[in-house]
Design a protein around this nucleic acid. Sequence first.
RNA 1: GCGCCCGUAGCUCAGCGGAUAGAGCAGGGGACUUCUAAUCCCAAGGCCGCAGGUUCGAAUCCUGCCGGGCGCACCA
Length: 572
Amino acid sequence: MDLEKLLTDRLAPAFAAVAGGPVDPVVRRSQHADFQSDAALALARQLGRPPRAIAEEVRQRAELADLCASVEVSGPGFLNLTVADRALGALVSALAADPRLGVPVAAGPETVVVDYSGPNVAKEMHVGHLRSTVIGDAAARLLEWLGHRVLRANHLGDWGTPFGMLIEHLVDLGEAGAARELSMGDLDAFYKAAREKFDADAAFRDRSRLRVVALQGGDPATLRLWRLLVTQSESYFLTVYELLDVTLSEADFRGESSYHDLLAPTVDELDRLGLLRRSDGADCVFPPGSVGRDGEPLPLIVRKSDGGYGYPATDLAALRHRTGTLGATRLLYVVGLPQRRHFEMVFAAAAQAGWLAPPARAEHVGFGSILGPDGRMLRSRAGGSVKLVGLLNEAVERATALARERNPELGDAEAAEVGRAVGIGAIKYADLAGDRRKDYVLDWERMLSLDGNTAPYLQYAYSRIRSIFRRAGAAARPGADVAPVAAAERALAFELVGFPAVVDAVAGSLEFHQLAGHLHRVAVAFSAFYERCPVLRADGPVRESRLALCDLTARVLGQGLHLLGIRTPERL
RNA sequence: GCGCCCGUAGCUCAGCGGAUAGAGCAGGGGACUUCUAAUCCCAAGGCCGCAGGUUCGAAUCCUGCCGGGCGCACCA
């Protein structure tokens, strides 16, 4: 039970009695006390009484004796609440005794599809894939921990016209040569070479077009070559995921091609429902609410005038499959914000078709772009885009060098492991620590900086705690009473008991910067506690209490970072 | 042109209806015979883009400007 809610429940009846109707006490953390209630101010006009008088009456009526050491009317009519040490201690002790750190398993588990990462076959993963992969993985980890059935959907770009030229290029290189090149992870060179031939060579262009036809026609030889491309790319992506500490596995690949057989039935059903309209030779749905440049309703083109199916058709087929066949009630699409309108239209069309009806709902978990140091968007095609593996490797290298410098006692193996955890953690944390809707600047210095609101700072706090237990030679005693009395202990305790509420909020909003911010506050509170409250040099109950507090802090930081996909080494 | 998003300390970002707007970095000053100083503490730094409005109360809600980004029919 979190403290804010506990106080709210106690204050609500008192406010109701004073106001003559239900009132939200508006409890929140305060700079002037532990918590404050702001509701008396809003009530003043309604009741025609001075706010301080209202607050005073609530103060007298509210049953807070067991929770609060003091309740005071302050300023224009705020109620300042100071929590009793004993009550705080009881809450922290309860949290420490709970393997789930106060976070309950979801009462109504859902089937959730998280659509994320989605790189393109035979194309390099670049920084643009970072956010989808990192944010989506955090969502999957979090919702899974809460007890939901999470289906990870890696919507691979494995189909479409470019595959004609890619397959022809593969043929030109010879299968063995192509496989070697692809397995080296040099997908960019492969794609670019194919593209260049396609642009320059008319004969190659013709072969490519024929090859697309053969692919779509199901020609066995062509399909075999196509699978070669897909498999090689998949195994490459898996190495990137492993480096990135992402939970996506081989079983999660759901390429566009896997919806191939569902496209025609999906479009047919739209037709049967009377939602399809022919426009300029293409079959379109016109979902309500979207208007184009000319002020006319904007179409979702499900079948192009050449008879081919486009992106919208695939998305609709996948959505229908996810709600209909898989029984998902929550669909998450972790895709960049520029595609907002596209998803609005897909969701609106799906709702019209009856494929997306309550309780099922779809959310576009959009995110901003990654910008270069010049403040302009990094684009994949425009050249000079950063290879994702290059970025990750550089982060690991820098972090490893730093680890060696800071802690010469580390052996080679451990330095490498620390460097990896810190480097990868730094990149992921940088991505998750800000509002995901906003663009952010990819700044090497800042991203790999080990100060401030960064993963290494949190990892350091964690490792300091582990170091205490190494020296103590023992774990915290299970069931030990936590008695926070010193200011630094109380501040840390308040942060720790706030963990469940933050997790709950983030499960809904998928704003991971709230979780990151909370963990940072925990680490800051811990660092202050660490400076001022000796643990191993204390005796008896104080030592036991502090050890328990340390242990709980480590578990909250460890679990929180784990949910973000960030490792917590035992020592840095 | 229409739609969506964004303008907060020199820089990077939190805060999104409540009491003096918070962190980190950079720059200034302190703290290691003491559990890792990758840390901590102190000081300094702000017409919260501009102008109206709503409210007891606005960085936060509404409207209009200004500045920036993105999107707007067969590419995924």
